[in-house]
Amino acid sequence: MKSCLIVDESKVIRLVTRKILEDLEFETEEATDGQSAVEACRRKMPSAILVEWNLPVLSGIEFLRALRALPGGEAPRVLFCTLENDLQHIQEAIKAGADEYVMKPFDSEIIRAKFALVGLL
């Protein structure tokens, strides 16, 4: 079973995302900030990571850099999920090693499409 780490400060978002991902038969794990997300990855590297751009402690982009520096940190597909739709952010994220981005608010169709795009489905 594939696993996905959901990193978002908002519990509401995490709940919604978890529901969608469980329907897609993902095993989910959650983290509330960039730092605890890094730790979660250190414990167990997930197959996919859905990460919010704005996070406390470590921001999304800082998390991404830390993740890619971890042993095995290249493996997970990382999807940035953000409201900040300007090109600059997306470019910055892709440059730092993100695989795809998702705009909030998303629904199960969008997630399914994006996950398919990065080869998770």
């Binding site: 908002s10 978002i13 919604v16 704005n54 409201l83 608010p105």
Partner: peptide, 10 residues
């Protein structure tokens, strides 16, 4: 930011 994101969902 969070309110904006979440209220979009709701």
């Amino acid at each position: 930011h969070t309110i904006k994101g979440t209220s979009g969902f709701l």
